[in-house]
Structures are given as C-alpha cells and as structure tokens.
Simulated assay, not measured.
Amino acid sequence: MLDARYQTFLVLSQTLSYTQTAHRLYITQPAVTQQIKSLEAELDVQLVSYQRPHLTVTSAGTELAAFVQRVQVEADKLVTGLRTPQGRQSLTFSTTLSLSEFLAPRLIQTIQAATALRQINCQVTNTRTALTAIDQGTSDFALIEGNFDKQRYDYRVVRQEPFVGVVASTSDLVGQTMVSWRDLIDQPLLIRELGSGSRDILISLAQAANVDLADFKQVITVNNPAAIRQLLLRNVGVSFVYRSVVADELADGRLHELPLAAGTVIHDLALVYAKDSFFASDYQRWAQKL
C-alpha cells in the first residue's frame, strides 16, 4: 500500500485545486501543500506546476497519478477478495457496442462456465469510456475494438476481424469490380459517434487514402450499430463495420460487401485490463477461450 501522500497527490491531479483536495480529504490546505512538496522532494521530481490561479500536472505527475490509481484499484479488489472467504462474488466488464452484438455474449458464457460468480455485470459503451472505467476501477476489464495505449494497459488479442465497407444490395455501388475511397464520397456516410473505436478506425482508413469526412456528400452520425444496420438495409448510405455485425444480412444477400481497392482491413479485437492486474490470469484464460 502507498502512503497518504500518494493518495493526496492522486486527488490533487483530479481536482487541480489545493482547496478542493483539502475539502475532499478532510485536511487543511497547508497540509495538502506540505504533502505534495514532501513527495516531490523524496522522489526528486516535479509533479505539479502552480501559477495562480492555475495548477497543472507535469508529464511525470500524470504518469505517477495513473500508477497510483492503478495500485489503489487493484488493492481495493484484493482486499475485497480477502474479506470474502468463498472467493470472488461479482465481476463487471465493459464492451463496445459493436462487440456487444457478437463477442460479449460468448464471453459471458465463458465466464459463466468457468466460475461460480453470483453477479456478472456487462456495461455497453464506447472505447473511450470503457478505458476510463478500467482506470477508475468501475470495470474489471473491457472488450475493445479501437486503438488504445498498449504501454498503459495489459491486453490479449481475442480475435482478428475484417472491417469492411457495406451497402444495401440495391445500391448503385453493387456490381463494381473495384471501389476506391474516392468512389464513396458521393454517398452519405454512416459513422459512429465520437469516442467509438469503429469511428477512429474508419477515419484512419480514410485519411490513409487522403480522404476526409468533410469530403463526403453527407455524414450521418449514429451511436448504435443496430441502427446503422437498419439504415444500410434502407439504402441510406455506406458504412464500415465488422463483418460479424452484418454476417446474417451479407449471407442472405440483403447487404453487400464492397470490393475495396485498398483491400480488406483486419483489425485486432482485444480484452484489455489494468497493467499488472492481480486477476490477470483469469482474464488471460477467458481471452484464450474466446
């Protein structure tokens, strides 16, 4: 366990206020200042910069705060486990919307078969929020489709999934032997919301072809893959999704996968968890079964 100065610094990094930190920890403001200065002196590192009225956390301070947060979350989980003789009783994980449709159900079945947990909680959200939940300890791990800092988290790739361009079978693009990104800009683009891993991947692919969202005739933002699927079926536009999300519609011919000139992109889907997690062996075992 870390001493109280680290906890004080963690709160200060979140509030960016000596006054609010003192109020939250029920100590005096001079005590907060003294603890931070003592910690900086011991570590011989500047953690914060204070120029009235603004306080900023240095890069070293940001790294330390993330570490303290991680240690605190893992310590709380360990203590909870020690207090429960019969073992771990509950688990909470996050999953992105796209993966909630075809991968999360398999994961729940895997956990159910391998454990005697009384509660399994699944939170459906976007990539950014899922990672924040891991940092804050409100989620044990997450099924992630988007990009993330691989130095900050531990992870296991559970699947490699094609990320494909899709239109209705009645679209004018059907029948073309090859489709470029420039061919798509006259079509309305159906895209996920900010924070979505699918959106980030789509934008990266477009930029690699020197195409920007502003180049499209129309951009329609929808925060639900099921709704995007319904819009595609109505020939509203073009979208990029994981093939498994529209597997049934592709199989029965209602939707059509575009033959992109750039080729099919294969993207890693990962089970992501806090670095050096006490429960890493469980997460790795479940990821392997997936």
Results as ranks from 00 to 15, higher is better:
Asp183Ala: 13
Lys150Pro: 02
Gly175Val: 07
Gly165Tyr: 10
Val11Gly: 06
Ser90Thr: 10
Leu2Phe: 05
Gln51Asp: 10
Glu74Tyr: 04
Gly237Glu: 08
Leu213Met: 13
Leu107Ser: 02
Asp149Lys: 06
Leu55Cys: 08
Val219His: 01
Ser90Asp: 13
Arg182Trp: 12
Val179Ser: 06
Asp248Pro: 01
Ala130Trp: 03
Gln151Tyr: 11
Ala66Glu: 08
Asp149Ser: 13
Val71Asp: 03
Leu78Arg: 12
Ile27Glu: 09
Ala247Val: 04
Thr129Phe: 08
Thr110Ile: 04
Gln7Cys: 07
Asp76Phe: 00
Thr138Gly: 01
Leu255Asp: 03
Val265Lys: 05
Gln20Leu: 09
Asn147Ser: 14
Arg70Gln: 10
Gly165Ile: 09
Gln207Glu: 15
Asp282Trp: 09
His267Pro: 00
Gln176Ile: 11
Ser180Leu: 08
Gln123Trp: 00
Trp286Asn: 08
Asp268Lys: 14
Leu173Thr: 04
Pro30Ile: 06
Leu173Glu: 01
Leu258Ile: 07
Phe148Cys: 10
Gln7Met: 12
Val45Asn: 06
Ile134Ser: 02
Val158Thr: 07
Arg106Asn: 02
Val164Lys: 07
Ala280Met: 01
Arg182Ile: 00
Val222Ser: 08
Ile220Met: 09
Phe148Gln: 10
Glu257Val: 08
Val11Tyr: 04
Leu107Lys: 02
Leu16His: 15
Val73Pro: 04
Ala214Trp: 01
Arg159Ile: 09
Glu42Thr: 13
Glu145Ile: 11
Lys275Leu: 12
Ala280Ile: 00
Ala41Ser: 15
Asp268Phe: 05
Thr92Tyr: 01
Val157Gln: 05
Leu290Ala: 04
Arg5Leu: 03
